[in-house]
């Protein structure tokens, strides 16, 4: 986005900080006017809670636990989503036969599958993993199919006339040609997976009375249901946002690194 030349080099900085700062200050002032025994969160309290939680290491390990689940579930989704996507993208008949099933599962939100995952797998990590994998599967699959089905025919023909054997064309032509689409799918899938793990941990916490799930979602739920520490909840929300942002940035950087020909 091209912005008009600023009057001074500080103008964009001031613009960027202005409204967030006003809102945070207003929030703090509002909190101060409340009675002393209030549980309402306030910026100062949030900062204090952050240092407390970060200092004890609990925040870090909970975040790590959630991230670990997301990565593992995501890895499953990559194997199945990209694998099936390559198959469906390459073969009309496979696509025609699987499309009806895929399309009927697609509108089923990941969280709707959670009760069944709990029935089948209990309230521990396997249930959380399956939700993440389910959530990440669809963006990966759909973008892979899209990418493969739009590979330029001429490129495949070119490889054939150079004597490249058929199995090898998949790896040397179709996969790189579909990579931009697949990577877009991966980025979307990872964002969805991160949301799904929070939801799964929250729900497991909410519905199994503490449960054994752990993770940052569970941590939030404990703050809500037991210690009633709203500052802690806001800290968790901020961490969730920052992780989401970092995941997005990481994938964009990876795309640039993997596909230098597009930049």
């Amino acid at each position: 986005m091209i912005r008009p030349a600023p009057e001074s080099r500080w103008t964009p900085v001031i613009n960027a900080v202005l409204l967030p700062a006003v809102l945070v200050i207003a929030w703090q002032i509002w909190a101060v006017t409340l009675p002393a025994d209030t549980r309402a969160p306030a910026p100062v309290g949030v900062v204090a809670a952050f240092f407390h939680l970060a200092g004890s290491g609990g925040l870090f390990s909970a975040t790590l636990q959630s991230l670990g689940r997301v990565l593992l579930g995501f890895a499953f989704a990559v194997v199945f989503g990209v694998g099936l996507g390559l198959l469906m993208g390459s073969s009309r008949s496979v696509k025609d036969n699987l499309d009806p099933i895929i399309e009927s599962f697609r509108p089923i939100a990941p969280m709707a599958v959670l009760p069944i995952a709990i029935l089948l797998l209990g309230t521990g990590t396997p249930a959380a993993l399956s939700i993440v994998a389910y959530a990440a599967f669809f963006p990966l699959l759909i973008n892979t199919v899209h990418g493969v089905s739009r590979v330029d025919r001429k490129l495949v023909q070119a490889a054939m006339t150079m004597g490249v054997p058929r199995p090898r064309i998949l790896a040397t032509v179709i996969l790189p040609a579909a990579l931009p689409s697949i990577m877009l799918g991966a980025r979307v899938a990872m964002g969805v997976a991160w949301t799904a793990i929070i939801a799964a941990e929250l729900a497991v916490g909410a519905k199994s009375g503490g449960g054994t799930s752990g993770g940052i979602g569970q941590m939030m739920f404990v703050f809500y249901a037991y210690s009633i520490d709203l500052n802690g909840i806001v800290v968790c929300m901020i961490v969730i946002g920052v992780v989401a942002l970092l995941i997005d940035r990481f994938f964009r950087a990876t795309e640039r690194w993997l596909m230098p020909w597009r930049y």
Partner: peptide, 8 residues
């Protein structure tokens, strides 16, 4: 994400 707002 919206989900993260649920406890608050």
């Amino acid at each position: 994400s919206g989900i993260a707002w649920i406890p608050l």
